[in-house]
Design a protein around this nucleic acid. Structure first.
Lengths: 363, 363
DNA sequence: TAGGCCTGATTAAACGATTAATCATTTCAC
DNA sequence: GTGAAATGATTAATCGTTTAATCAGGCCTA
């Protein structure tokens, strides 16, 4: 109460200069017609009084809150910091604030989180959906970051291409029997990465196999061993994880078993998470350009909010969408897939002869 | 424009029932005097029309935005997901939304980020300050999460006690020469952890030494080796890192050098980060009860926002703070230090004889 | 039966910014 | 010299909600 009373508003500035509020508003927003010298005086006193425009007043009048929502499948995901940071930065540049909403991995809570954001009056939202979830009506423009192969996706890294890159890298190092490590076959991102990986290799000369951790843990409990030493015995010489988290798991398990990386076998990851450069050996991985992704998503979203003519608006099951829809709309950006970049570090190396490896391993 | 016009508001509900807006408002908020049956009818039609109260209108009238700010030193910190998740959850329970602001590790940007939040009209903010930063005037209640030893701290984990716990654990395992691994001596959190660690040990019987990674990297470049194999030669049998990130770095470096963990040496971390349970061997670490911390911080903050009588308000350099200050105020909670919990996993084990270790190591 | 009290509802005034409409001047063209 | 246009400012309505003040009856009491 008191604090609000104390803050200078347009009325106070107008009063202190003996002019009308409208003129002050026009001067500060640069929209109406105000003489240059008066505008200058207004800006000066506004600054002197420490004027801060009331978002509430503005929002009420304009119907815009100036806030975007960020919905994540699970904040505790290690990739989240980067996403949040990039989105926050792009949004701030575009003049928007970012409200976070966590669905804690639960599909039901995702709708709930979206609902909370809508109630707070966000102008639009960026959603990183949980495993192939369809986005329900949100009542505001929505940008989805998932996978290019997912319908409704706005923008994302080109996971397929990333998979191809890492596959070529390992093939060029001479590896011919490669184990892919993923968490869940239900993840479209992981499937894309694996699909791209396989697509780059000639199946007749290079043997691949997929290990799903989730399935393994159902049997052996969370945090169980992946049995990679056995795989090495079977002749696998490279382990390509679909995330740095799994790569790390593989790396430490192999090291613990006395198998040298990259001397005996190679290990690669995905995402270039924070620990990847500092572990020994530093992880070879694939980095996504999150800054670019965030920028594209925010740009598309803001464009859609501003009555997006340049942006196509669509609604599932509604082909004719010429006029901007008042309610829900999924935003599609021009450039929807951002290439991933291979980061070669020390955990991957050329294929060595099996005999050398085995002798070292059994000593 | 169109979208706002379509959303049902109090006026529409009132009109559809042929009553006044005030009655509708009273019925929905349960504040004024409304007959039970009419209130019921109002709630019913509100639900039927899909009424969502306008935060903007409410904020303008009440002077409360219902939004809290979360300021972090660096969103890319691996601990951030947990903090954000916990804060978001506690805030949501208290009926608040959370706006994020990242200072990207830069001290100057911290003030800037705070300013942005103020401009968005947050009712209060939670700040995790960067390395011993003093919080400048924010113009709204502020809860600080740092270290109990920092002046102005509202609530935090008891890092000192956490250090003691891990020290006792290693001592009880028989270790007598322990290397502490930290990043920077400027961090008050890390200093507390190290201080607590040392305080639990008798310096005459147990030898400790501190390795500051930042100093090392200044010379050898980022991601350099820590030279732990040498330390092992010097007789160190346990490596207590001040963060799981550094513990991971130590673990992999030792493994790569052919030193078995925990058979030859022990490694411990701090914070129980996401990878800690899944690496091999799983990391022994100390977990902070972030849920409790977030809850306490939010409770104190909300209490201060609501004209906190039960909460002491203070201003640096102003001892007499009986009446609630309109502007800046640092919030202090009753219970300001939350104990940390030791999580024993496989990376720490009893001391083995040096000879066994060396022979294994040189094979 | 008149005055007072309780109940259940209405009236109307904010909150702060935006903006279309309007009004007074001055300038300019014909 | 008169009507039109441009300039620079003001007036007033509006966004949706909250809330103090008011009002109309019904009921009880003296």
């Amino acid at each position: 109460m008191g604090s609000a009373r104390l803050g200078p508003n347009l009325t106070r500035i107008a009063a202190s200069l003996g002019i009308s509020v409208a003129t002050v508003s026009n001067a500060l927003s640069g929209k109406g017609r105000v003489s240059v010298e008066l505008a200058e005086r207004i800006r000066a006193t506004a600054a002197a009084l420490g004027y801060v425009p009331s978002q509430a007043g503005r929002a009420l009048r304009t119907g815009r809150s100036g806030v975007l929502g960020l919905v994540l499948p699970d904040i505790s995901n290690p990739l989240f910091p980067q996403i949040a940071q990039a989105i926050e930065h792009s949004a701030a540049v575009a003049g928007y604030g970012v409200l976070i909403a966590d669905s804690r991995g639960d599909i039901g809570m995702q709708s709930e989180a979206i609902q909370r954001l809508v109630e707070r009056g966000v102008d639009g939202m960026v959603i990183v959906p949980r495993r192939g979830t369809r986005i329900a009506d949100a009542g505001c423009p929505v940008a989805v970051i998932d996978t290019p192969s997912t319908p409704g996706n706005t923008v994302s890294a080109d996971h397929w291409q990333g998979g191809r890159e890492i596959a070529r890298h390992l093939r060029n190092l001479g590896h011919r029997k490669i184990l892919l490590i993923g968490a869940s076959s239900a993840s479209s991102v992981q499937n894309d990465r694996i699909g791209g990986f396989k697509s780059a290799l000639d199946a007749t000369t290079i043997k691949t196999e997929v290990l799903w951790i989730e399935k393994l843990e159902e049997r052996d409990g969370p945090g169980c061993l992946l049995g990679l030493a056995d795989k090495v015995q079977q002749g696998f010489t490279a382990f390509a994880a679909v995330s740095d988290l799994h790569a790390l798991r593989a790396l430490t398990e192999l090291q613990r078993a006395g198998i040298a990386v990259p001397d005996s076998v190679s290990v690669t990851g995905f995402d270039d998470l924070i620990w990847s450069p500092v572990v020994t050996p530093a992880l070879t991985t694939i980095r996504m350009d999150i800054t670019a992704i965030a920028e594209i998503a925010i740009t598309a979203l803001v464009s859609a909010i501003n009555n997006g003519k340049p942006i196509k608006t669509m609604r599932p099951g509604d082909a004719s969408a010429d006029e901007p829809l008042p309610g829900n709309r999924l935003v599609i950006a021009e450039k929807s897939r951002v290439p991933m970049q291979l980061v070669v570090r020390q955990s991957s190396g050329p294929l060595r002869l099996a005999k050398t490896k085995l002798s070292a391993e059994n000593s």
